[in-house]
Design a protein around this nucleic acid. Sequence first.
DNA 1: TTGTAGGCGTTATCAA
DNA 2: TTGATAACGCCTACAA
Lengths: 343, 343
Amino acid sequence: VRPDIRQVAAEAGVSTATVSRVLSGRGPASADATLAVRAAAQRLHYLPSASASSLRTDRSMIIGVLVPNLANPVFLPFLRTVEHLAQRYGYSVIVADTQHSADIERSQLDRLSAQQIDGLIMAGRPRDLDHVHRLTEAGVVVTDPVTFTEQEGYPLRTIAAAAVEDACRHLASLGHRRLAFVARGHSRRRTSGDRWRLIESSCRGLGLEPKRVTLGGDGDDIEGDTSMAVTLDALVCSVEGPTVIWSNSHVLAPLVLEGLTVSAIDIPTDCSFVTFGDSLWARAYRPSISVISDDLDAAATALTSSVLHRLGVTGAGPPVDIPASVYRPRMSVGPAPLGSSPE
Amino acid sequence: VRPDIRQVAAEAGVSTATVSRVLSGRGPASADATLAVRAAAQRLHYLPSASASSLRTDRSMIIGVLVPNLANPVFLPFLRTVEHLAQRYGYSVIVADTQHSADIERSQLDRLSAQQIDGLIMAGRPRDLDHVHRLTEAGVVVTDPVTFTEQEGYPLRTIAAAAVEDACRHLASLGHRRLAFVARGHSRRRTSGDRWRLIESSCRGLGLEPKRVTLGGDGDDIEGDTSMAVTLDALVCSVEGPTVIWSNSHVLAPLVLEGLTVSAIDIPTDCSFVTFGDSLWARAYRPSISVISDDLDAAATALTSSVLHRLGVTGAGPPVDIPASVYRPRMSVGPAPLGSSPE
DNA sequence: TTGTAGGCGTTATCAA
DNA sequence: TTGATAACGCCTACAA
């Protein structure tokens, strides 16, 4: 049902080689031929078959994006930026979700590899380096935040470190002495560990005592339950309870906030609140929520342009750095409640 | 660098035909041959080239997803569901964003078509039917919410109609008489028009007078500005101002809420609030926000299983319906302020 | 049950 | 500048 290059050639009165040269822009072609071919292609609604052309040229014009959890909205701006940038240079984007599982990651990588992707952007850090390495050997340009930042001499830890330090310093200066970092339970993902270590080391020397609290549930997509309120209630109202709750993610935050509301814990009077991840809702919430904000658009731009650059795409501009995270203090952070810090 | 089917054949001591038969599962193969081929493939890390096999079989094992605006978070669960379902049956998913533009939609459809996608899922309604029709003629299985629901004898309007009617009835019963539906300005998208008509007809006979308010800005991704607060202030505080604000989308809602806060308009005392689109944040907000909730997971499941079904995938189960929208009344809707409805 | 061989639609080489 | 032609890697009718 679809026209092939021979039909276009016949329609235009030239050879298939000429059609190919004109439409792909590679190789010489006279003005006459160019016009005739263009017209014929238009008339027949001809689109060259990507499979055939990939087979021949060994370039699929497809970029893969591997995301640890498609349920997490932070990946949306990421994905969007990758897609827009890719599209601008004629690339298609295949999304794959690893669901935080090493096995799924492997099978997804295999599928992407079989699809002959030209480049791969990993939004999280790879679990199976051998597998990824094999892709690289197969000629796929692979980028992930860790290797990217290391390549550019920009260790990942420093990206978030300054923002976390800012936040801790701010909290300490307001008289806070005890902080609870809340994250989902026994998660297979590693970010919460990285973040915890960052908070831990930032608190050092500020008189802030951090504590790590693990909540039930194991995904970004799990609904809140009443046990959340109970846990938070017991936590905050205990004798040496924290005066700061720090949520591990933008997705977790509303659940925690709901739990605090149920327990009648007022923010920021009884307890200050901070979360990783900004959003319009965090800003609109009353009190507006203090956040550690990451520019995922910029991160996506950095990774994508790096890949395009290494794929030899001209005009994609030089790769840029991933900008550092920023602490945005808002109304949810206030002075520590009286009597909370024994003089 | 990548192994070839011939190398696997050599390694396993069989012919390429046998390798193909074993690995694709089509055609007979002895136990011996199967074992030998599997082992050889594993050893060489062989993955059949998708381009070559697509070219030969005319099936790319790729499904396209065309989304009107990747910046809108409502499409994330949608995308995730499509990806998971597709992945389970060996399909890859290419995402494309039309950015609400007919031109971009056309070029995206062309790209998808050139990629030889087997199926296409459109999250919004198509703008250029001719273009879509051409895809269908090319053998691509196309589904979008409108044709899907019409096919299943389930007109799209009825999906949201009952929920909107429920909401209007609830509001009217609380004494509200004037309602303002707020949406982004001169948008190229059509949803807000559909929704407006739904609200308009639902208000009829309930003594509720609907009004359509157009705010500046033109995308789901545009940040709020102070003009929002000014507009809302003038709107709500006018003599015959509305006592209900109804936001067109989950993305717009926090901007409107922020504007109301700035104008010191209290919810639900001064004004009730409803929005299309649910989320954890809407639930966590104080007061919790009443919403018209759509089950996009279910919609994605319906569309994807329909496509898989029509692609002849076995085990994908029969196509399911798209469930109707639901009105979830919460704390943001309260009695109309005194004196607002002249007896 | 297996192997041989031709062709899917495109592009790169090469001779004209 | 153009056209004929040989691959690219795989699948499948067909013959063995």
